[in-house]
Design a protein around this nucleic acid. Sequence first.
DNA 1: GCCAACGTTGGC
DNA 2: GCCAACGTTGGC
Length: 154
Amino acid sequence: MRYWLMKSEPATFSLDDLAARPGQTEPWDGVRNYQARNMMRDEMRPGDQVFFYHSNCAVPGIVGIAEVVGEPRPDPTAFDPESSYHDPKSTPEKPRWHLVDVRYVRHLRRVIPLAELKTHATGALDGLPLVRRGNRLSIMPVTPEQWAFILSLE
DNA sequence: GCCAACGTTGGC
DNA sequence: GCCAACGTTGGC
């Protein structure tokens, strides 16, 4: 079982939104970055645990936990001409983009702000892409040690 | 709203 | 294959 961090803009899709979905589950569609896609398609498996991160908001930070349900699958929004995520180069026969379905687990007892996580950038969170300068990855791996450390801050 | 960082595109 | 231009991300 692996650990991950996934970013979402709460104005678009928040952890509360995830908790309110039928089955508390949502397809993580619209990822159009190859690094992020490769992680979903090639490395994510059902049961993997995910830190849910709010970006582009007043207090960016980790707000809760979700988990991967089901196997990775082609992203259907890529096939849909009406979708803002449409990519004509992705076809059902040869899908270019993939997603995983993500299910709500829980909110953290408090938001752990990016600013606080950054204070550990040269310590326990050394190497975590989130706390590196200029990082833009929307999906990233978290080591078991980093996961446990972040939970200890809760 | 600004802007640094970074990925992608496309001309050559 | 290089690299300038451009678009996007996302913190602040």
